[in-house]
């Protein structure tokens, strides 16, 4: 069977780049949400003690 090399290269490069892009995106979102939650939780401490359930 003839190998379609351009397809191979496409799968190879789009795969590597794709995985990294998704994981970087996820990293940024995780850091962002962590920061937001930190803020929310420190506010909550000032106001009341039942901040845990609030989002």
């Amino acid at each position: 069977m003839e190998t379609n090399w351009s397809k191979v290269i496409e799968v190879f490069s789009s795969g590597i780049i794709g995985v990294f892009l998704v994981m970087v995106l996820l990293q940024i979102l995780t850091q962002l949400s962590t920061r937001v939650i930190d803020l929310v939780e420190s506010w909550g401490k000032d106001e009341s003690s039942e901040s845990e359930v609030k989002k």
Binding site: G15, I16, V19, F20, V22, M23, V24, L26, Q27, T30, Q31, T34
Partner: peptide, 11 residues
């Protein structure tokens, strides 16, 4: 969260 990149690296 930096370790997410390591999970990508191995792939």
């Amino acid at each position: 969260p930096k370790t997410l990149l390591l999970g990508a690296g191995a792939q």
